[in-house]
Design a protein around this nucleic acid. Structure first.
Ligand SMILES: NC(=O)c1ccc[n+]([C@@H]2O[C@H](COP(=O)([O-])OP(=O)(O)OC[C@H]3O[C@@H](n4cnc5c(N)ncnc54)[C@H](O)[C@@H]3O)[C@@H](O)[C@H]2O)c1
Ligand SMILES: NC(=O)c1ccc[n+]([C@@H]2O[C@H](COP(=O)([O-])OP(=O)(O)OC[C@H]3O[C@@H](n4cnc5c(N)ncnc54)[C@H](O)[C@@H]3O)[C@@H](O)[C@H]2O)c1
Lengths: 206, 206
DNA sequence: TTGTGTTTGTACTCACTTTCACAAGCTCAT
DNA sequence: ATGAGCTTGTGAAAGTGAGTACAAACACAA
């Protein structure tokens, strides 16, 4: 039972999937889900799922499966999503506004605590119950326990803004602008370039 | 000069990156970019880039680098982005509206040709110069040469809608809803679940 | 023409990831 | 209590991708 192996990066990347599957398939019920059922839903192979979960402990019961609510709670603990994670949203443009009013972040424990923009016309306005604040006062978030940020500003401003966020104590950034950010190693970036992701689609059309 | 090797999936996934880099770094100029310069910008290793590009031909010149406009055009050809690719957008909600008016898809040759929704209150309204059409009439796109779709509707409706799209001749789908679509093998899906992607961030916060 | 400096293209090696196969362990009917 | 039927957890094998090192090729100066 040597569980001191290194946990693969790809396993970490799949953990939120499992959480999503347990939340969706399990409903609010307290039943069990087998690696087979999970695999069918997530389009993965059962042994992959079993191995991934087993890196963190023996969550399942042989002959039965994984207990829904218990395993979900375990994954939340592993990903540190068991406590509400405050995030700031930078950029109250088209994409930022959509994100601000999106309830889907709550399932993962994310809570948008503040919205910033640098356009005078937008500062002071309210979206999703939050008043848009001036980016110039971004440093003030240092006092609160905000460690996450969502970047929804133009690419040209993204690096400068990321620098400020890191200065303000942010440790993780979801970057939606089409550029590659340079940050200290302790800061984790997840970049999503929607247009670019779509760029592979025509290749596969025969 | 045996170039009959299998092209790795990961290489395909990186090709749009290279296109983005050539577009951004190269500007409209007609200079050269070395694998080193590209790597610095994209946060990759130079040999990785050279190997990826060499799968498709000898685009570079030793001692010089890759010719910007020529290589960009080659990559567009490889990804079939050299011709304008029509796409339909399904869902004129918060996210759909943001996407409809986003100019960033054009760089990759994407052109949103029509917008659909099933809400009576939205059908007939205009966004981004396009009149929102009734999803019930989605099958009509068969006549036009539309092979791509962007799905920005709730997860519960996504699978049914995907089925209709496939019936209507769509061969590639950018799915933004938090669910895993089941489609025939000939259809390519790129799914992006923003909330889920963010789910790994807290894990890395020490 | 020759030498120097630079950069590509790629064989080889190494690392990571996924899949396979099966023993161990649980449930439940008899 | 026992056996039949599942499902987990995991070592070993297979598959895939990344990194290293270097020869080949080009530009340009002398
Ligand atoms: N809209 C989309 O569908 C979409 C799709 C993919 C990617 N993106 C990317 O997301 C980002 C935002 O896109 P958008 O469409 O919402 O753009 P937008 O122009 O509608 O909004 C950008 C917002 O950022 C604000 N801003 C600009 N510079 C700022 C700064 N230095 N500090 C704070 N705020 C600043 C602007 O005032 C504006 O409100 C862009 O990088 C874009 O490329 C958008
Ligand atoms: N808003 C965000 O920031 C965000 C972020 C991540 C993911 N998403 C996902 O993107 C999708 C859309 O999100 P949203 O925030 O724009 O939702 P929304 O409710 O604002 O918009 C959904 C739109 O889809 C339409 N619709 C519903 N069922 C339909 C059907 N069967 N056919 C055609 N149209 C239909 C609705 O009329 C509405 O206009 C959802 O799956 C959501 O989970 C949104």
């Amino acid at each position: 039972m040597m569980k001191y192996r290194r946990i693969p990066e790809e396993t970490i990347r799949r953990m939120p999937r499992y959480l999503r599957a347990f939340s969706t398939l399990g409903g609010h019920g307290r039943g069990f889900l087998s690696s087979r059922q999970l695999a069918d839903y997530l389009h993965l192979n059962p042994p992959q799922i079993r191995k991934d979960l087993s890196y963190f402990g023996d969550f399942g019961t042989r002959g039965v499966g994984y207990p829904v609510s218990q395993t979900a709670e375990q994954i939340r603990k592993i990903l540190k999503l068991d406590v509400s994670q405050k995030a700031v949203l930078i950029g109250a443009g088209r994409l930022g506004t959509a994100i601000a009013s999106y309830p889907g972040f709550a399932i993962f424990g994310f809570n948008i605590a503040a919205i910033f923009d640098n356009a005078p016309a937008k500062i002071g306005k309210k979206i999703a119950g939050l008043t848009i604040q001036d980016t110039a006062r971004l440093a003030a978030i240092r006092s609160g326990d905000v460690h996450l940020a969502i970047l929804a500003i133009p690419g040209e401003a993204a690096q400068t803004c990321a620098d400020t966020l890191v200065q303000a104590g942010v440790r993780g950034i979801l970057n939606l602008s089409p550029c590659w950010l340079r940050v200290p190693k302790r800061v984790k970036i997840v970049s999503i370039d929607l247009a670019m992701e779509m760029g592979t689609l025509p290749y596969y059309i025969k």
